[in-house]
Amino acid sequence: MTSLVSLRGVSKTFDSGTQAIAALDLEVRVGEFLSLVGPSGCGKSTALRIIADLIVPTTGGVTWPEGKPEIGFVFQEPTLMPWRSALDNARLPLELKGIARGDAEARSKQALARVGLGEFEKAYPRELSGGMKMRVSIARAIAAQPKLLLMDEPFAALDELTRQSLNDDLLKLAREDGITVIFVTHSVYESAYLSDRVVVMTPRPGRVAADIAIAQPQNRSAAYRLTSQFTDAAGKISAALGHAMAA
């Protein structure tokens, strides 16, 4: 498979002197669902921000063999603008890119409908539940039709049922649009359910500790969570994580 983005020897030392990541090598392939797991503070968020070009690495570089694609970003918090309706929040990326209002509105309406919020276009964030706000945040990210979606623990604050239904919706959206996803999570089970590949990072400064490929069935569902295929994958990730922490 062709490579979408590669990080070579990327390290980041902040002005405060904290070295968040050290010599990180990471290859992300077109169309894959890649999870990043690792102990708190190991530089996962920093790595995502470097890929998004929001911060500059201290050493090393990020290369895009096929050219830099449209990128979407979803944070742990929904980070919506409280003074804007769901529709106007979802429209933001298109608006900033200078797309004509009518077109932008149509596309963000469609994005909201795809995350199941077609009826909540006019609602303000404070009128929505946590899960619904996260859906608006996802609608905003997909409205601009990204080829790469960066997600930083997007469902960490949600209850288990909401999280599972968002997991399924996310998989469906990514598959339908052919989006490559880099997904940061603390949950071993979530990464085992979603990913084609899981990269385990060491404690700070973060490096790659293990790189685990997971053979996923096309259709995953609640029943899949009970199969030995799933629990084996989760076991492998968990063991690698334990190993990385101990090292």
Partner: peptide
Amino acid sequence: RNLVDLFRLYGASRWQILWKLQLPG
């Protein structure tokens, strides 16, 4: 902070960040 980053991700100008994000906030 994250919203500022989001604006920057989509190539917003300083003026757009001021007008659409900082002033309403």
